[in-house]
Design a binder for these strands. Structure first.
Lengths: 190, 190, 190, 190
DNA sequence: TATGAATGAGACTTCATTCAT
DNA sequence: CATGAATGAAGTCTCATTCAT
């Protein structure tokens, strides 16, 4: 693939996500995306089959990217607690550094559109995290409850806090991040 | 003259929320709503100024309804812990009995559309809950941390669990509800 | 007929003509007329069959009114020149005192709508004027040319001047009116 | 890509003016125009921003076209009387050969819509004629009266006659045109 | 008579998508 | 590959008119 082309696709993706975050999916037209990306409307159809296909690929792109970054530098031989705290720290880092991706993900993860488009793919990508929590349960480190609950108590408060942060209603500090991670840990540890 | 039919407005609201939950806002047209509500397309405009106005009013209707039900039967003279657990129980009850309202609320609370339409109104309605947590903090019952964090650790896991529930990935039992409420309490108590 | 009812019809007529002059026919809806007239939308249909019928009756009302006032105080036994100048003076008086009627008349006299609705009625009403000019020709006082030309050179400049006046581009004085009438007389006298 | 088709814009303009002349502005919908022009409804919006913009551009197109043709072949060094008669002859020629343009222009020159849309542009285009009459006044050839009056007595009877002509109530002949021009000249010459 | 809620046809306009260039 | 003019289906909303009260 030529450089120029990869660049065009990248620009389309970024323009689409930004627009959707700013004005919402319903208000985001293909021509607005094209305009913001600096390409012609027709060009989008070189890279994506249609609008639905584009949304789906946007979502999977973001989801895959998040997943990879979250597990970056995790050493499976270290204690579960250390791994857990590193994962949460990675997550918070990612969120802060990728505002657009995070907000897009959050906004559409529960939408009927995404449910329809890529429920399965979404679950597959979440698998490594689920497996991590199951290992922790087996080792007696996490509470012996439904893994879903562990997953939820570990992550959902972080997501909410991040949303408040980008909303301008909450300020992050190094210390606060540590406190938060500790609270999550306390809520699920055995 | 024909008298305004309260029933008609109700039917429009229900039809709108159901459709939006099923196919998403972008795919929900005014004529589909009219059809599902059994009224003429023009009739919607007797009760709402336009689509945006309708969405906004739907959202505030739901939000207000939730808020009222959550505080039902709360006795301010009882201990904070008792009140807290009753509020969370009320919340779970409401969610289970008002699936459509809950999912609609969850889906759009963070959308750019709602942010644009009714950020202020939303905050006003949330006030009583915030005040409850502040009273708890003053009495030394909750952790001395940002009230936002308390609010988030108390509610956001419940919301996630409810979503998983309606998704078919989680089953509620009387006992599980109690466990969950206990977990939330543990995470924020001093 | 009861007073109250006559009053309502009058109010509808006035409101309609005012609105049509201000924003144009295309932008004038029945409900706007009703609102401005202080009646209900349905009430208009007590007095007029439908919108087309209303426009037609508005037009004929105005036309008949103009015609009557133009011939007011004309003494058929006086010399043609005196009668002619009095008719033009009456016309100018009418125009100045009935701005709304005049502008409405001018605006729609040539419209396809009016042509379709009431071409015949319009011609019948113009008859007395045509007859007056024919008498003048027979007496050798006007030029021996097509009566249409006499009619046009007598009136059309006055109409244009009145429009300029209401447009704010021309100011009437007693003297100017006399000059204008004289110019018209000069252009058609034998 | 497909190149913009100048012919298409032309067809839209012609279809719009014809329809407006036949059934009136209020009854002329964008889809009827598209149909008559043999293009898709959406295509109109490639060439015009919206209906108002289209009407405005139609009007200015016609006005500009008229203005240019009226001054065609006018030699500024000839006597004012010769120039004047040539201008009126050009005007009558244009009117006869461009029935649709003329009737459209006449119908809407005084409408509230056009007043709102393009009063200024209209006045700018009329300027050369006004200047011509002022030169004539300075040379003592026209009456020393308000230039508006000269302008009106020169043109408005011609416009009325043309309307009668297209209405089927007046027949043009070479001789009659000369007579008319002479009458206008007589009414304004010093 | 008078009202105005209700209707549904139709208006304007947008937009995903195609295709000649 | 890239463009953007062209399409036509579909969306939102208005409005003349009707009719139960």
């Amino acid at each position: 693939m030529r450089y120029k082309d990869a660049d065009k696709k990248e620009r389309i993706i970024i323009a689409a996500i930004q627009l959707i975050n700013e004005v919402g999916l319903a208000e985001t037209s293909m021509s607005k995306i094209a305009k913001n990306a600096g390409v012609s409307a027709g060009t989008i159809y070189v890279y994506f089959e249609n609008k639905e296909d584009m949304i789906k690929k946007l979502f999977l792109t973001v989801k895959t990217d998040m997943q990879q970054k979250i597990f970056r530098g995790i050493d499976g031989s270290l204690p579960i607690e250390v791994q857990f705290k590193q994962i949460l720290k990675n997550y918070m880092d990612y969120v802060v550094k990728n505002k657009d991706y995070f907000l897009f993900f959050e906004q559409y993860i529960n939408s009927p559109l995404i449910q329809k488009l890529c429920k399965e793919e979404t679950q597959i990508i979440a698998k490594p995290l689920i497996e991590f929590f199951e290992r922790g349960k087996e080792q007696g480190i996490f509470k012996q409850i439904d893994t879903n609950l562990i997953f939820i108590y570990a992550f959902s408060p972080l997501m909410q806090i991040a949303k408040k942060h980008f909303n301008g209603e909450f300020e992050f500090t190094e210390q606060k991040v540590d406190e938060i991670i500790q609270m999550s840990w306390d809520s699920i540890k055995a």
